[in-house]
Write a protein that binds this DNA or RNA. Structure first.
Lengths: 343, 343
DNA sequence: TTGTATGCGTTATCAA
DNA sequence: TTGATAACGCATACAA
């Protein structure tokens, strides 16, 4: 494998000139640069990674820690990892994937050995064991997701509260007076990735602030869980004419099946909106309006923040990604526009 | 961050003694070793990765290339990546994850820059574009999966043909005379990861060699595809009393739903076996007997082969992982044991 | 059993 | 505009 000496020899210059020509950190005459470029091509030269790390004090590698929990939705999980990898490549960075059983020790290891320049922490839980480690590290780190106590950390996440408000607004603006939220299974709220809480509170609060009747239900365990929850919501209070689903794909699919089974048409009898979904709701039947959770949005931002931290010291903060609404025709005005409850 | 000089100073020895004490490549007196160990602990010393790579000519990093195709089953995909990572850690290796849009160029890059010592190629397709690159690389590589032309390559995979035979044998041994194979959607056979072909041919051939009537059906597109295929198999010929499913989880789930819908009990009316499945069939209803596709089996083997290639030159070859059958009670003798077709 | 010294391939400082 | 050279941190051949 050719090294910088070979290139220098072929181009008839010194190795420092080659280095500078390639890094662009010093001006090099046109003629010299051309000779170097052609030598590089001729030899198929690519700088040796180890040499570069050692001298440059940059490894061009980012660690990604992404635990695969029992209830992790694999497609989304993978999408986030890949989104980080793709974003990292734009800065000429590669990613080193840490496994769950090495969550904390792996972080210690790759940072102490200076294998990585920065860390992206995916799928952050409220009481995540990785957080304390991260806090005590001098290696720039960014969390995708917000832990219980984000002080001193840099975090990126979808603005779940804004998404919740946007959901409520979308239904309210369409004329609905009673809406339901189909949430995650109870376990999610208990073990707690805090996004579930944030969404629920903001949704109920904002819906009520807009004068809507708002109900919440969690799918119980078992195959009928989602169906039962849907029934509850549709029959609760004034009977929801708008439904927001903030849960996994399989649950949303089951909910839709229940709705069809009940003979309700979408959006004729019921308007449905899928919130913070990391899957493709446009291929559902019917296609669902959605406020998507775009892996690339959060991950691009996370990687950019690590890069910023690498160049200067950027202050720890929480960066929220604005939600976007995409219509596929599953939200419409309610068939019968009821007068306000008690007015 | 402490370096080897710091450790040497604190322990009162030379850096080479520290290096040898840690690598174990030279004997070190008990007393000296203890002093070094305590200095290491005191300073929290971990060898600098770049320094080690440069001097040792080993990066302790493996590249993993795992394209996420449109029809990739994400949970299995992720399971394989993690299995490689876990296996690699046992050899003190980390993994660098290459993205699909960098499939070939990424391989060139990480090998030319000597960033990785070896490569694990996951989800190999028959006409995989990565294969030609791999062939021209001097970096040890192992494919998990078998391409159309494996000559000159080292590959690891489940022995799909043995799995197919084991499937047929299991049903034949239970007394079934007519069996059906629910395969993958047609697209899989066309685009061709060749495992699907291998399984189908071996299954049909072996079943017939054992005197069974054997039918094959592919699920068509759309939600009813799997159900229709199941119907076809159950009604074909003598009517299959044993069903082998070699397809994705969602298709198997739908097939089971269809079977229940038809009022058939498992294994009373129909014996069912899930073949080469990377998901948990014990939580299906009913739990399904399975010949699992264990990511760890293939990946452990793949990593071990890369390590072997790193130490000596091991010859390219195909290594087949033996299939294993796990019973969950979904295969039983047929209710009515028909006499052999024409005997 | 231990120490000295060289080289790995690059970046960056200091000279020219 | 370019060149010589000193780090960077470690592994290992060679000495003792």
């Amino acid at each position: 494998m050719a090294n910088i000496h070979d290139v220098a020899r072929v181009a008839g210059v010194s190795i420092s000139t080659v280095s500078y020509a390639l890094s662009g950190k010093r001006s090099v005459s046109e003629r010299t640069r051309e000779r170097i470029d052609s030598a590089v091509r001729e030899l198929g030269y690519l700088p040796n990674a180890a040499g570069r790390m050692l001298a440059g004090a940059r490894t061009q590698i980012l660690a990604v820690t992404a635990p695969l929990r029992a209830d992790t939705y694999a497609p989304a999980h993978m999408a986030f990892v890949l989104a980080v990898a793709t974003a990292a490549r734009r800065y000429d960075y590669d990613i080193l994937l840490l496994t769950e059983d090495e969550a904390t020790s792996g972080l210690q290891r790759v940072t102490s050995s200076r294998l990585v320049d920065g860390i992206i922490v995916l799928d952050v839980a409220i009481d995540d064991e990785r957080i304390e480690v991260i806090r005590n590290l001098s290696t720039p780190s960014v969390l995708v997701g917000i832990p219980g106590e984000p002080a001193g950390l840099t975090c990126v996440d979808l603005d779940f509260e804004a998404a919740a408000r946007l959901s409520a607004d979308t239904l309210a603006d369409a004329g609905h007076r009673s809406v339901g939220l189909l949430g995650h299974p109870a376990a999610v709220y208990e073990r707690g990735s805090n996004f579930a809480h944030r969404f629920r509170s903001a949704f109920l609060e904002h819906a009520r602030a807009r004068g809507l009747e708002a109900a919440f239900a969690m799918p119980g365990p078992g195959p009928a869980g989602a169906a039962d929850a849907v029934d509850t919501l549709i029959r609760s209070g004034a009977g929801a004419t708008g439904l927001v689903m903030h849960c996994e794909e399989s649950l949303q699919t089951r909910a839709l099946a229940r709705i069809a089974e009940a003979g309700l048409s979408i959006p004729g009898d019921l308007s449905v909106l899928s919130a913070c979904s990391s899957f493709d709701t446009s291929s559902f039947s019917p296609p669902l309006d959605v406020i998507p959770l775009v892996a690339a949005d959060s991950c691009d931002s996370a990687v950019a923040l690590v890069m910023a931290a690498l160049e200067s010291r950027s202050e720890p903060h929480v960066e929220l990604v604005a939600p976007r609404f995409t219509s596929h025709g599953s939200v419409a005005p309610p068939r019968v526009s009821l007068p306000p409850a008690a007015a």
